[in-house]
Computed example of a mutant assay.
Amino acid sequence: MISVLYLVDNLGPGGSQRYVAELARHAASFGVLPHVCSAKEGGVFHEELLREKTPLFFAPFRKLYGPDGFRALTTLAGYVRSHRIDVLHTFQTNANILGTMAARITGRRVITTRRDMGDFGMRGSPRLAAFETHVINRLSDRIVANSRAAMEAAQRNEGIPPEKLGCIYNGIDCGRFRPEADKRPWRRALNVPETSSCVFGIVAGHRPVKSVDTAIRAFSRVRARHPDSLLLLVGGGPERANLEALVRNLGLESSALFLGAREDVENLLPAFDVFLNSSRSESFSNAILEAMASGLPVVATRVGGNPESVSEGVTGFLVPADDPDSMGKVMESLASDPLLRERMGQAGRERVHALFSKERSFLELEKLYLSVLRR
């Protein structure tokens, strides 16, 4: 088996962390002995990895550039040597930096990931971010994006050689998600009205890049023509108070309901009729795939990798970012047509099973690990 160390900045809620937990859980099925390293202890996936008995260790630091960062690097390099790690596979910026350096110190192969479009989340000054990106790109054996859009953006903006860059889509556990014809018990469990004509839902952090306010404004347009429709907002973050104020200002207190941050999304999606994604930037959304696997039509912004998951007019609709009128218009068409919702939802489920299953993703990862070890 190939011994792979997965590195993340933390084990709290997040798409990268969930993906690493999935990789660790199913690693044996694609010929991998997994180890996981995080810079921080705690978090929902910390407990999950412990339950799965995944080898887990921590390389903590307060500041990456300084004595703490050096200690974290030496700790990481020591673990790589003592546990005979073959490949380091890193996620997120700090992990990418530490992982590439540790790989060079120990003579191991390293794969870094690109899971954003390079236009949000820049750390520190642009000059520092550019330097870090240059170092990561130079030291990586392979760089893997989770969408063609992210891969092409990295190649276009950073001049990465095509042979060093690849794309492996996120894979999800399709068996964890299922369509539900009778939505009433799922709505009852959430304490929301069972007989609403159309329930829209969004699962996203309350951060500016997710533009949840666009979804709320779009829903206000739908609500005017479909007064018994609902909007369920799942997530948390620094924008929560502003979003609650917007709901009050639009008079939507009884129809736009905040459910908070949740990890059991498989118990929430069956209560929805339509899934929304209003992001300003998105490399490739796990939440969209999970909604499609649950048989939901998707209304998403035409940004990043969203057009690679959502087939326009077949599994849902794509609209411009920051355009609540355009989003509201297609939401109205779905609210008015249950048969269209059903048809698009079924097409979406078939698309996820065919293209975005965890089995397909893991098979491509196994090929990648073998290819870097042959170099």
Rank of each mutant, 00 (worst) to 15 (best):
S3H: 06
V4K: 05
L7R: 00
D9C: 07
L11T: 06
L11W: 06
G14D: 01
V32Y: 09
P34A: 00
H35K: 02
V36P: 12
S38P: 09
A39E: 00
A39Y: 00
E41R: 15
G43M: 10
L49Y: 02
L50F: 09
P55V: 01
F57S: 05
F61I: 07
L64T: 11
Y65S: 15
G69C: 11
L73A: 03
T75D: 10
A77H: 15
V80R: 05
R81I: 15
D86S: 03
D86R: 00
D86N: 06
F91Q: 06
T93K: 00
A95E: 02
L98I: 01
T100Q: 04
A102C: 03
A102S: 04
R104E: 11
I105D: 05
G107D: 11
R108G: 10
T112K: 02
T112P: 09
D116S: 12
G118P: 03
R123Y: 03
G124W: 03
S125Q: 04
A129H: 02
T133G: 09
T133V: 09
S140H: 12
R142H: 12
R142C: 10
V144L: 13
R148H: 03
A149G: 05
R156F: 14
N157M: 14
G159A: 04
I160T: 03
P161F: 04
K164Q: 12
G171P: 11
I172H: 00
D173E: 06
R178P: 07
P179Q: 08
P179I: 13
K183A: 11
P185L: 08
R187S: 03
R188S: 15
R188Y: 15
L190F: 11
T195E: 01
S196G: 03
V199H: 02
H206C: 08
K210H: 04
K210P: 02
D213P: 08
R221G: 09
R225F: 14
S229D: 01
L230P: 01
L230R: 00
G237C: 03
P238Q: 11
P238F: 14
E239Q: 02
L246I: 12
R248P: 14
L250T: 05
F258E: 12
L259A: 11
A261G: 05
D264A: 05
E266D: 13
N267I: 09
L276N: 07
L276M: 06
N277Y: 07
S279T: 01
S279L: 04
A287E: 02
I288H: 00
V298D: 02
G304L: 01
N306Q: 09
P307G: 01
E308Y: 05
S309M: 07
E312I: 05
G313F: 13
T315Y: 00
F317C: 06
F317Y: 07
M331C: 13
S333L: 12
D337K: 04
P338M: 12
L339N: 15
L340P: 12
E342D: 13
G348F: 10
R360F: 10
L365N: 01
Y369C: 05
S371P: 15
R375T: 10
R375H: 04
